[in-house]
Amino acid sequence: MRESADERHDRLLDLVREQGSSRVSDLAAELGVSTVTVRRDVEALAQRGLLDRVHGSVSWPRSAVAAAGPGSPPGGGGLVLGLLAPSATYYFAEVIRGAHDAAAQAGARLILRISDYRPEEDKARTEGLLAAGAEGLLIAPGWQAAGDQAAYGDWMSELSVPAVLLERQPAPGSPLDDMDRVCSDHRHGVLLAVRHLIRLGHGTPLLVARADSPTALAVRAGYDEALGALGLEQPRPVIDSVPAELDRGRFEEAVRAVQAAVTTGGVTAALVHNDVDAIHLVQRLAELGVRVPEDLALVAYDDEVAALADTPLTAVAPPKRQVGLYGTRLLVERLSTGPRGRPLGRREQEEPGQHLALLPRLHVRVSCGAAAPR
């Protein structure tokens, strides 16, 4: 079976950690791939803070070595923490960076595996982290649909090591509801956006959102709650958003629905999940004669690339880096409660479990500056 990029990344990180530093050409020979492939891998890992690059050589991050203390080996003699994430790009790149920073501060080694949003592989990837020596786990399952937790998640309640869920909220009363978790409060983020648009003088904003991730589902639920809290009525059903690159036809349907809401329905504001979909939407609406912000005040959700749009987009920014940072600190705290190699179980611990909800922020830019409705 052909080795995946994630598996190659794991091997590359293991080699650098063991050797302290290595030349790209040597790594290519040991991995059995081209130097071009290794350079590309090193670039990706360096951008996530997992490696340092210096003139054709690669080394273990200086921050991790320093945190481990003088005289420590590159991998450190401290804890080994495993992180399972559905992706290493877009939203989760910042979560990983926060976890890496917190692990370095604690003198711990962080090892990463990626599920590519395939929840059926979460368990096997996690077993790989444990086999690699992880003493505690940070887990962001690859759930996408509402039923994925029930279908693919119960195994996490039986883990033999401490674990913290990241950016996932299990169903109340489910086996995973007792686990420690650190999440962005997306409902609060949606409330910030809706309230901001209302204060600008607009009627109830339209919601344009995906339905293919826990964040998307939380945004939809938060929209209903925000309208109830503010005493607003929904102007029309939520418009289903689809990535333009995946289904151009359905994306065009969403654009036309927004256009109709603005031109014939009196809608003057919208909240769009996520940044990339919002940028595509604004570009296509301009071609159809609907201008942002003149005709439509728009707020995006995620704030990954919103500021880079032609018309910089006002956006809700979940505290992604802090999710990784706080989750790792909580995991290190859990591991410190028992003898090394035998963390205490929940019933033996004096400290209660924790569900941390971190509040998003609203970054106001040009796209929400449309005048009050005519």
Score class of each variant (00 low, 15 high):
Asp178Phe: 10
Val95Lys: 00
Gly327Met: 07
Gly136Ile: 15
Ala44Ser: 11
Ala150Thr: 12
Leu230Gly: 09
Pro214Val: 01
Pro312Leu: 05
Ser72Leu: 06
Leu298Met: 07
Gly98Tyr: 00
Trp60Gly: 15
Arg187Thr: 10
Glu7Ala: 14
Gly98Gln: 01
Gly353Gln: 13
Glu158Asn: 08
Glu252Arg: 14
Glu304Gly: 13
Ser367Lys: 08
Pro318Trp: 03
Thr264Cys: 10
Val292Trp: 02
Trp143Tyr: 11
His363Ile: 09
Gly69His: 08
Pro119Met: 01
Leu313Arg: 12
Leu31Cys: 02
Pro235Ala: 04
Gln19Leu: 14
Leu137Thr: 10
Thr35Cys: 11
Leu246Ile: 09
Gln234Glu: 14
Thr89Gly: 09
Val255Gln: 01
Ile279Gln: 03
Ala211Cys: 15
Trp60His: 15
Gly249Ile: 04
Pro86Glu: 00
Leu331Tyr: 05
Pro293Asn: 01
Pro293Asp: 03
Gly341Phe: 09
Gln19Phe: 12
Ala211Met: 14
Arg199Gln: 15
Gln105Ile: 09
Leu129Ile: 05
Gly75Asn: 06
Asp275Ser: 07
Gly77Met: 14
Glu225Lys: 05
Ala102Ser: 02
Gln234Val: 07
Gly20Thr: 01
Asp240Thr: 12
Gln105Thr: 13
Val276Ile: 11
Arg181Phe: 00
Leu331His: 09
Gly71Val: 07
Ala254Asp: 08
Ala286Gly: 12
Tyr301Ala: 05
Gly75Leu: 05
Trp155Lys: 06
Asp310Ala: 13
Gln234His: 11
Cys368Tyr: 02
Asp101Glu: 11
Met179Gln: 07
Glu121Arg: 13
His196Val: 11
Ala297Arg: 02
Pro235Trp: 04
Gly327His: 11
Leu130Trp: 00
Ser25Lys: 06
Arg168Lys: 15
Ser21Phe: 07
Ser367Glu: 03
Gly77Leu: 15
Ala150Lys: 08
Tyr90Leu: 09
Ala151Lys: 04
Gly353Asp: 14
Thr268Val: 01
Gln169Ile: 13
Gly147His: 03
Asp277Arg: 06
Leu308Pro: 00
Gly203Trp: 12
Thr89Asp: 13
Ala93Val: 03
Gly201Pro: 00
Val194Met: 06
Tyr326Asp: 15
Ala88Ile: 15
Trp155Ile: 07
Arg329Pro: 06
Gly56Gln: 05
Ala257His: 08
Gly49Tyr: 02
Gly56Tyr: 07
Asp177Ile: 14
Asp180Trp: 03
Ala307Thr: 04
Pro293Glu: 04
Ala218Asn: 06
Asp177Glu: 08
Ala88Leu: 15
Ser174Ile: 10
Glu287Asn: 12
